[in-house]
């Protein structure tokens, strides 16, 4: 009977703890977010810290960001990792992703590719595109896993389909060069275009070059100038050079027309 009583009290404790966690999970990170958006970082930290202490994953994750960037607190990469790890253990994908990247960079924690891969796989299982892409890079370079070009491209393909622009860019490059996949210039241009539409400067420059050369697309100098100009406007040095060369070969009225459409460009929203 005493045994049974203990079990009941233990169960009550567990239920109590769980409901506390539940309350914490429902607590609102929005006021801190609003302070953060205003650039009042000290206030954001003050508002997120109690939520983080009580186990709220997004508050833990955000507090990790503040330590990582040294905003509202002194910069402390070790503290950042501690908070990301707490949120990652709760299965929170953005925290898993950042923790894995700290492990790769050796920021605030000893570099550990193998552990990074284990975390990336966990986020990838949730369909978290950025982690899927990073995992592809680990296979591509053989960091923490044996090099596996086929597996790398498969992961890029998955992340690209999930909408990640860096993965789309890398996949396009693989198709262009026939690395890990059969060479396919049309498919390369299509993936460059999807990343370019999301505002990826390198992809815009590459797409501009595809149009200039007529590789995988119908040759079109006006479109070449359009995409090259968008990349140049983002400060990409090689696009600035390429744009100069293109401008010299085109009529002034075409250059004017392109300049006008360039200023109207709005990137499509990335999914993640």
């Amino acid at each position: 009977m005493r045994m049974f009583g203990r079990l009941i009290s233990l169960a009550t404790t567990i239920v109590g703890a769980a409901s506390l966690l539940g309350a914490a999970a429902m607590a609102d990170v929005t006021p801190g977010w609003e302070a953060y958006q205003r650039g009042d970082f000290a206030k954001a930290v003050e508002l997120w810290r109690p939520l983080a202490d009580s186990g709220d994953s997004s508050a833990q994750y955000n507090l990790g960001i503040m330590y990582d960037q040294g905003r509202g607190v002194g910069q402390d990469a070790t503290e950042a990792v501690r908070w990301w790890r707490a949120a990652a253990e709760g299965g929170y994908a953005p925290a898993i992703h950042n923790l894995a990247n700290s492990l790769i960079a050796g920021d605030g924690v000893a570099q550990d590719y193998a552990e990074a891969v284990r975390w990336l796989e966990r986020a990838a299982d949730q369909g978290f595109a950025r982690s899927v892409y990073t995992l592809g890079k680990m296979y591509s370079y053989g960091l923490g896993v044996a090099t596996d070009g086929g597996k790398a491209v498969a992961l890029f393909e998955q992340a690209a389909s999930l909408g990640n622009p860096r993965a789309q860019y890398n996949l396009a490059r693989s198709y262009r060069d026939g690395e890990g996949v059969p060479k396919d210039l049309e498919r390369a241009a299509q993936w460059y275009e999807r990343a370019a539409q999301q505002g990826d400067a390198a992809a815009q420059a590459a797409l501009g070059q595809r149009y200039a050369l007529g590789e995988g697309v119908r040759q079109d100098q006006e479109k070449a100038l359009y995409w090259t100009s968008l990349a140049a406007a983002q400060g990409l040095a090689r696009a600035v050079e390429a744009r100069k060369a293109l401008v010299q070969t085109l009529e002034a009225r075409i250059v004017d027309r392109v300049d006008r459409s360039v200023s109207g460009f709005r990137p499509t929203l990335p999914t993640q």
Partner: peptide, 17 residues
């Protein structure tokens, strides 16, 4: 990879867990 890891980190979120 270090540079990629740093640029890949996400920033703060308004999402609730």
């Amino acid at each position: 990879e270090v540079l990629r890891a740093r640029s890949s980190k996400l920033s703060a979120t308004a999402a609730r867990s």
